[in-house]
Amino acid sequence: MEKERATLKDYGYRDFTLMNKIYKILKKFFVVFIIFGLYISIIVIAIQSVNESRIISEFTRLSFKWYGNIFQEEELMQAIKNTFLVSGIATVLATILGTFFAIGLYALGKKVRVIWMLLNNVPILNADIVTGFSLMLMFRLLMVVFPNIFGLFTLVMAHLFFTIPYVVLSVMPKLKETDPNLMDAALDLGVRPYKALIKVVIPAIKAGIFSGMLLALTMSIDDFVISYFNTGAGFDNLSIWIYAVIGRRNLTPSVYAFSTLLTLFTLLGLLIYSFLQKQKKGRKNEKNNINGRAS
């Protein structure tokens, strides 16, 4: 009698083709839906920026007049200036201070550092509304001594409070990666510790400092809640100004034009950055090839 042949199934083979097909269709649907959800608001902003009519519910004609109008809108220009002023000061200070603070915390040794890193995370994890509200209360209490404290000063202080932790957090892993012998070598060669810090350690953690700076800038420039509570004397940044104008229902389309320009510039910057990275990689590969051939 002929023995029954073992099927593929008996060997443990299972057929997933149908499942894979279903998954593939679902996948496409989900990806489209998510990209749509993420980008719909930006697309609408772009459409509104090239709409000739001031009325936002109707598309009349293609026009770029709102782009030219950005500089004529005094309130908008003031808000943009304020935003860049606050974020500029906060980002520069946070990057410099945060780097040195991170180096200091790293030198403390692991046990003590963990506690301070936990405290460092508080401004990041804490809800904006609690940070903003409680800082505002503290500044209010200080008003007894400094009556005109609210405005640029309180805004920059508040922004520093939540941007420095991001810089510390992105510099710290780079510090851990650096070779401790680097510093010792520099010291052995007779360099003073602080000079060695600037000449040896800082270049080694450059990438961390840069990404920390970018994070700080991103967080600072887009901040609404913390700024909302801590500004004063009509010192509005872009978010606060837009929020206030929405309430009055007469937002100028130039805001959309400005936002679209900003998005395009960001996109351009990213493209240039990734292009440069690619070139750098290419050059490295070339070098390796040459070295490989030589040896």
Partner: peptide, 18 residues
């Protein structure tokens, strides 16, 4: 993450509009 770089309040407002 690109959408996160434009203003949150403005994005929300245009979402509310459409």
């Amino acid at each position: 993450i690109l959408p996160m770089w434009s203003n949150l309040i403005l994005r929300t407002e245009s979402l509310a509009n459409i």
